[in-house]
Computed example of a mutant assay.
Amino acid sequence: MGDSLRYIASNQVRFHQELHLRPRRINHYRFLFVESGCGEFQISGEEFAVQSSWLGLLSPGLRENRYSKRKPVSYLFVEFQSSERLTDQRAVEFREQEPQRSALIGLLKTIHVQRGDPDGCLLAAAVRLMFPEAEITDSPPLDERLQIIKRLIEAAPDQNYRISELAEAAGLSEPHLRRLFRTQLGMSPKQFLRRARMEFAQRLMQHEGLRVGEAAHLLGFASVFQFSAQYRQVMGHPPSDDRGTG
């Protein structure tokens, strides 16, 4: 999580029916390659259309998608987070006359086939293809004391540690711990812990078949409502998007 670029998800999607994805808050970037079909996007109030061979980058924001039933749709996407703002535009198109276009498509397909890009190297290369002037630098090595905390949380993500417990495990005062998190990770210890726990809950629902209520209980939440509110705040969408409500 200390990398400037962090892989979120990727997939190949095909369907033959009209589809309307209602507005939802998206907190990450999306590379999108439309192989066939057509559709309309609205990101934070700005509308634009995509059609066969459209290739580009969608920025975070309140996103709404509509796809037409007139043409079967097939597209490839790769989603990721960036510690730096990549563009002020809602959508950046990579036009067919761009000489690096085929290389970018190849990178996106490689990321999808490999089911990820843990070091962010392929994502950094993809961003450089779209924005040659961008400086995507690797973050400095994670402080050893933060590595201790990271391993502690990853070993028991169902535990809701107090910040004082994390500080004690790392041999730091709480103020020093907070400064270190802000400097190296750009977030507070509480934000880091919440994201780790919500990502753990997401994996349980997506891959282990847990219902929302079961995930909430496992993570020690007093109610499904409380869990759902925190999940939406951290992940940008309700837990029911990742699994049917329990």
Score class of each variant (00 low, 15 high):
234 V>H: 04
83 S>F: 13
174 E>T: 10
245 T>E: 13
71 K>E: 13
169 A>G: 12
113 V>C: 14
209 G>R: 02
215 A>Q: 00
97 Q>D: 11
34 V>M: 11
73 V>K: 09
240 S>L: 04
64 E>I: 06
161 Y>R: 09
159 Q>M: 00
62 L>P: 09
58 L>C: 04
203 R>Q: 12
187 M>P: 02
197 R>L: 14
131 F>S: 13
13 V>H: 00
196 A>V: 14
59 S>Y: 06
99 P>G: 07
206 Q>T: 10
76 L>N: 05
63 R>W: 13
101 R>F: 03
76 L>H: 03
25 R>N: 09
64 E>A: 15
190 K>H: 07
216 A>S: 10
195 R>C: 08
45 G>V: 11
127 V>F: 02
38 C>R: 10
99 P>S: 05
144 E>C: 07
8 I>A: 14
145 R>Q: 04
214 E>H: 06
57 L>Y: 04
166 L>W: 00
145 R>E: 05
107 L>Q: 04
45 G>Q: 02
233 Q>F: 02
206 Q>Y: 05
238 P>D: 01
167 A>C: 07
152 L>V: 03
77 F>Y: 07
192 F>R: 09
108 L>K: 05
143 D>F: 07
63 R>T: 15
99 P>F: 02
157 P>C: 01
133 E>L: 05
111 I>T: 04
232 R>I: 00
9 A>F: 14
10 S>G: 14
107 L>C: 08
10 S>Y: 05
164 S>V: 14
125 A>M: 00
75 Y>V: 06
160 N>I: 04
146 L>V: 05
116 G>M: 06
115 R>V: 12
33 F>Y: 14
242 D>Q: 10
210 L>Y: 10
125 A>N: 00
223 S>Y: 07
142 L>P: 12
45 G>E: 08
29 Y>K: 02
106 G>H: 11
126 A>C: 11
106 G>A: 03
121 C>I: 15
164 S>P: 05
165 E>R: 12
40 E>S: 10
188 S>R: 00
88 D>H: 05
194 R>G: 12
125 A>Q: 10
30 R>N: 12
187 M>A: 09
117 D>H: 05
123 L>T: 06
68 S>R: 09
85 R>L: 13
168 E>T: 13
99 P>A: 01
139 S>F: 10
214 E>R: 03
78 V>I: 12
118 P>W: 00
122 L>G: 00
16 H>K: 14
92 V>C: 03
